[in-house]
Design a protein around this nucleic acid. Structure first.
Lengths: 158, 158
DNA sequence: TATATTGATGGACATATGTCCACCATATGG
DNA sequence: CCATATGGTGGACATATGTCCATCAATATA
């Protein structure tokens, strides 16, 4: 596809297309690393439980329904997996003070440590790639990703 | 954790830690979108096949073994899934001229179109977030991600 | 109080996925 | 030529996952 860079609309569209391409490559590569990280997290644990724990680590506590929507899982499945994680002491689920039908699911310190350890391996893979980056470039990337990750431009709901 | 920003070593480590955190959030959020994108790709197709197709779209043709390693799957599974994709006309597998035991697996134009269409939905989710970004910031992010995604600093093995 | 709604849990079952193994074709080394 | 190694395919089976449904407790509404 040939793009006329002098046309502002097309230039913007091209930028967006290239962002999609780069995100796709990143996510595609990260998937394999995630599979291996999940295996490291806990041997007696279903891999899908790792996704839940990681989401909780990334975005903080929520109730079961929100969590189910966020990770694109059935509520039944989330309930089962949270049960596993709770039995292993990696998450806690306290009744929601606002609506006592619901529960607030949160990582325990033990769970947080496990996540950090499991992710460390993946960290190594990327650390090699940024080894020769300047601090300025690295800081810039972190800042831009941070902005990309907070939909409203506000702080994440920790 | 309190970091002494005047110590260059700690500042660098802190940057790397924050990059890990941001990547984790991005990957965690992207996972749910990927699940939905896979469903859009083809109804009669196993979701895992979408991962294969996406990897081929992101990184280009390879042989079955390399593909299996890259996506952290068993060779048997890759063989089965590639078979499905081939039957649907989304990939081609030609014998490797270098080693005629092996095959080179590549997306067909039809497969490429499907991937682009399936990813478009996810694109919309991110497009909202970057709607108010300046072209300069967007271009900067694309450039930095591009550098992050090419391990050796060289061009990807298309 | 009676009724309907909502959040969560867990059983039951179908489907998808991971893994092991046997097999075939080619390649490699003696 | 023979033995062995390697890339790929597909069968068989165990496990993980997705989905539907019944159930319970707390809310909300009348």
């Amino acid at each position: 596809m040939v793009v006329d860079a002098t046309d502002p609309e097309d230039a913007r569209g091209e930028l967006e297309r290239r962002l999609g391409e780069q995100l796709n490559a990143l996510i595609s590569a990260a998937h394999a690393l995630s599979v291996r990280a999940a295996a490291h997290f806990d041997a007696g644990l279903q891999p899908a439980a790792f996704h839940l724990a990681r989401w909780l680590y990334a975005f903080g506590p929520t109730n079961a329904s929100t969590l189910a929507t966020a990770v694109a899982m059935d509520r039944s499945a989330v309930s089962r997996l949270v049960g596993q994680l709770r039995r292993l002491g990696f998450v806690r689920s306290d009744p929601d003070p606002q609506d006592r039908r619901g529960v607030i699911i949160a990582l325990t310190p033990a769970g947080q440590q496990r996540i950090v350890a499991a992710i460390a391996e993946r960290g190594l893979a990327f650390q090699e790639r940024i080894a020769h980056w300047s601090d300025a470039d690295l800081a810039q990337l972190v800042a831009l990703l941070s902005r990309l990750n907070t939909p409203g431009g506000a702080d994440p709901p920790r």
